[in-house]
Nucleic acid binder design. Structure first.
Lengths: 363, 363
DNA sequence: ACCGGCGATGGAAACGATCTCAGGCAGACA
DNA sequence: TGTCTGCCTGAGATCGTTTCCATCGCCGGT
């Protein structure tokens, strides 16, 4: 019975029979020592041309492939990097992951991916697991960059790490790639004030996240320079729900307190904000000016296109990988700051008058 | 000099000194055999309570952690799964990856991620690399599910694999999770025809991709039942550029040939389509009815909200992982089909008259 | 002709775990 | 009290590499 099936292609035979061929088998078949095969395969040291060819022929014949696991154990490096990410379904993080993975692969590294679902405990757990898997380095987009447990886990890992748009202050010797959220945020705030807005609102992410912190302080800094304007910051999750409920509550205030311009701290938040606006029949930019933060190619598709505090996530990923590679090659933990910019559009306009809708057609 | 720095926390001392402690050291320190430590740590067999406690105490003292690499080498399984994905920046794939990673992690597996950038050669390369890394299983969202090289690579890998929304016909013994794109596609097509549309267009992805193939045949099937209507399919990349140029060329036709309803084969394509429409001052749904395919939470934010042929990518990811786990646990390669649905909105309306714009304010 | 040096090769010890196998010791039963 | 059974424990082989070390042959120098 066994082996009775029709064999479609001849060459596949040898391969499909042997489930896995080891270096020893290659050595035996070639009549050389195991160590010589290793030297040829890993191209490490002086090997005579005749030996090289002899071994390579058998390698090809048997379809030998090195076992990276065994190699890693012996060499003490796995050529693997762990990426801990809040939620890969976040388009921004996905783009970062893409940039990083691409660069790491070029350098011969593979990337382990773990989602921590915005749970700091999972962040720590993943770092621990990655450590046990002996990753050579870590890329971390942490939920809370001030978590002390995490600092301990990270220190124990004792491998190079790069924080991705997270504050590295608590993690000595750890590199970071940071966006200069302040510059984009300040420019956006100033643009709105120049348009005449005096009631600004920032519907923000959680203070545990650096981007949220930076944007909030940028807003406050600008407002301090402009006593004629006032602004408020509403912190919460990077979620549509936070955006929606916060926007709704802002609209439900006394007329003169309703902001005339709002900055959404992420695309997720934006989604909620837009939902609330639609329900309340608020028209952009007639009734409210809107700025969003994540630069998705989608923002230009709205009508009007949305003004955006933008960044290049793909570049962020690449730079993160680059910094990690530098450390993996023995370099120091260098940090980098990438710029953000403000792209104004017709979604921002001068305020017409203190809002006076909110009992419109909606629910 | 060395060690002269202030030590912040006492307990961190022991840990940070020893870069890595092995099972042998635990055994020595506990005065027991290496194999006994192994039994305790892996909780494998009968160990006396006194032995257990003695070992665990030393484990805690030294901060011992098992080396998964060595364990994998010995056990012959790495508890690692490789996920080959076209482009993780595609929100649909990211959501799938999230679902899969979550489920796999629950089962103790880690996930290696590789982007093949819509290049079949990279698909093969990644499978080969994953094989050398001895992954226990593969999740594959292939660029071209009809690539023969790939079938060979896959056969050599000799591990369970699950195709993610890709045709498994060429890969004997490989499981697949498939969307029933036909049902959603047919329902959408029928809905448009019922509204009175007779000129339909499907701006589609590449025929190498199963979803694109399925939707095209669904459209054709429905048209065959409705001789009064005609439709055309334009294949191309899943890209905004394809969507934009194709939509523009459709609009540039003779008036009576311009479709009155268009289905975008992906969100990327939709982006291009909307760009072209805006440039040509085409109003949805007055001038053109639009349906899109990927179910992003964003579609509801357009004005009007876009009708969608929708699916649950998170569920797809979970199910893919589940099927892979079944095989990893010795089960058969089972395949599953998930439903798709059509969600109509005001972006679809009866056609007013053969299009008569196209010299509007645009470019 | 002898010896030092060098390049290529083979043998064997790691890397850090798992797991089989054999032996020791205690309890039970006759 | 002797023997058998059965649970624990320890020793050692093993997974597939890399890499150190010793060896061997060859060449040039004197």
């Amino acid at each position: 019975m066994r082996g009775g099936g029709a064999v479609r292609s001849g060459e596949a035979l040898a391969v499909s029979q042997a489930s896995r061929v080891s270096m020893q088998e290659v050595a035996d078949r070639a009549g050389v020592a195991l160590s010589s095969v290793s030297r040829v395969v890993s191209g490490h040291r002086d090997v005579s041309p005749v030996m090289r060819e002899r071994v390579l022929r058998v390698v090809a014949d048997l379809g030998y492939e090195p076992d990276i696991l065994a190699r890693s154990l012996r060499r003490g490096q796995t050529m693997t990097v762990g990426f801990v990410v809040g939620n890969i379904a976040n388009p921004l993080l996905a783009e970062i992951a893409l940039g990083a993975e691409t660069r790491l692969r070029e350098a011969g590294y593979a990337m382990l991916l773990a989602n921590s679902m915005d749970d700091p405990a999972l962040d720590s757990a993943h770092i621990r697991l990655f450590r046990q898997r002996r990753v050579d380095g870590l890329l971390l987009s942490l939920t809370d960059d001030r978590d002390p447990d995490l600092a301990a886990e990270l220190a124990r890992a004792n491998v190079p790490a790069v924080l991705v748009d997270r504050d590295a202050a608590r993690y000595p010797g750890v590199a970071a790639v940071l966006y200069d959220h302040a510059s984009g945020g300040e420019r956006a705030t100033e643009a709105l004030i120049e348009l005449g807005h005096t009631h600004l609102a920032l519907i923000n992410g959680p203070p545990a996240s650096r981007p949220a912190r930076e944007r909030a302080s940028a807003l406050r800094r600008v407002l301090r320079r402009h006593p004629e304007a006032a602004g408020l910051v509403r912190s919460g999750a990077f979620s549509a729900q936070h955006g929606e409920s916060t926007m709704a509550s802002l609209l439900a205030q006394d007329n003169e307190a309703v902001p005339t311009a709002v900055i959404a701290g992420s695309n997720q938040i934006l989604v909620g904000v837009l939902r609330a606006l639609r329900r309340a029949n608020v028209i952009i930019p007639k009734d409210l000016s809107v700025v969003t933060c994540d630069d998705q190619p989608l923002s230009e598709l709205f009508d009007p296109p949305l003004a955006t505090i933008s960044r290049q996530p793909h570049e962020l990923g690449e730079v993160s990988a680059e910094l990690l590679l530098e450390q993996l090659n023995g370099g120091p933990a260098r940090s980098v700051v990438l710029p953000t910019s403000f792209r104004p559009t017709e979604s921002c306009a001068p305020p017409r008058q203190p809002a006076r809708r909110r009992r419109g057609g909606g629910g």
